[in-house]
Simulated scan of single mutants.
Amino acid sequence: MEVTKLIVTEKDKKTLIDLIRNSEAVDPIAAKCRKKLYEELKVATVIAENEFPRKVVRIGSVVTITTPFGRKAGLEMVLPQRADIQKGKLSVLSPMGTALIGYAEGSDVSWHFPQGDEIINIEKVDNDIEVFPHG
């Protein structure tokens, strides 16, 4: 199985690393997910903002995913302080958020959930919305 590196912009990489370094994850699953994302970010492929692929999940992307627990459409990837899952705003530091960031539309991503490791399929990535400032 081919190991795929995350794809990020330099700005998103710095933002995510700073968030992870300055966050307190009490929940062991969240801590494990953040550690895995941190390790992946260290070796991620960094792409210039103007060359970033339109179908890769990043801060501000709106995604449609399928998990073993069902399909979720219109989830916006946001910074933790803007997270509100009831309004479809998924924190990039949540277990699911850390699973999605940096992966492309069509990818199957294995990640840690309370029930164990599960596969998330990224059905659609929309980066056509205006990305809010984050750093």
Rank of each mutant, 00 (worst) to 15 (best):
D27R: 14
S91E: 04
L79M: 15
S91F: 04
V8H: 01
L93A: 14
I17C: 00
G70W: 01
V78T: 15
V62L: 01
K124F: 06
N121C: 05
D108C: 13
K14Y: 02
K5V: 12
D126L: 04
T4A: 12
E39W: 05
H134K: 05
D27L: 03
E51P: 03
P28R: 02
K5Q: 15
D126F: 03
I65F: 12
L90G: 06
I129L: 04
V3S: 14
V43C: 05
F52G: 06
L90R: 06
E24T: 03
G97P: 01
D117L: 04
D108N: 15
E118H: 03
K32V: 07
K42W: 00
E39F: 04
E76W: 08
V109C: 01
L41K: 02
K89F: 07
L100S: 07
R54H: 13
Y38C: 04
R21Y: 01
F69H: 12
G70V: 02
S94N: 04
K32A: 14
Q81S: 14
G102W: 05
E10N: 12
K72I: 10
I119Y: 10
A73C: 03
I59Q: 08
D108L: 13
K72G: 01
I122T: 01
K72Y: 14
Y103N: 13
G70E: 08
G106P: 09
D126G: 06
V125N: 08
G70Y: 03
H112D: 08
I85L: 15
K13D: 02
V43A: 09
G88Q: 09
V62M: 03
F132V: 14
A83I: 09
E118Y: 02
G60I: 00
N50V: 05
K42F: 03
D18H: 09
P28T: 04
C33W: 08
M96T: 12
V78Q: 13
A30D: 12
R71H: 10
T67N: 10
T45I: 10
